[in-house]
Amino acid sequence: MKKGKTVKVELINDVLVVQLPARLDAVGVASIEEQLAMAVANHRGKVLADMSQVTFVASLALRMLLTTLKAVQPLGGDVRLVGLQPPIAEIFRKSRFDTFFRIYPDRTTALAAYTAPSG
C-alpha cells in the first residue's frame, strides 16, 4: 500500500495539532498512521486532531484514533477532536466513539479548553 502522505503537524503552545487528510479509508490510514504514532509518541502530551477536512472515516480510522488515545493517556496526555462534519459526527455517534473523545466545533474552542484550568 502506498505510504508517504504526510500529516500536517504543528505545535500551538503545548498542544500538538494534527490536520487529518480528507479520506481516512484503508489507503488514507496506511499513509499517515506511522507518522501520527511517531509524532504523538515524541510529544507525550496534549493532542488535537483537526478533522475539518475529513469527509470519510471507516472503522480502521476509528481504531487508529483510539490507539492514539490509548498511547497518550498513560502519559497524562489526551486526544481531542475538532471540526467533525455531519456525516463523520454521525459515525462517531452511532459507534459511541463520541464517548471516548472530547469533541469541539473548532480549534479556537478546543485550544481554549485545553488551556483552561479544568481542561
Binding site: 472503522s59 476509528l62 481504531r63 483510539l66 488515545l69 459507534s95 459511541r96 464517548t99 471516548f100
Partner: peptide, 16 residues
C-alpha cells in the same frame, strides 16, 4: 463502553 480500555471493537465495520 465507558472507557477505551473496556471497548471490544470486534465487528465495528460490519456494524456500520
Amino acid at each position: 463502553h465507558t472507557s477505551a480500555d473496556e471497548c471490544d471493537l470486534g465487528g465495528l465495520g460490519i456494524f456500520f
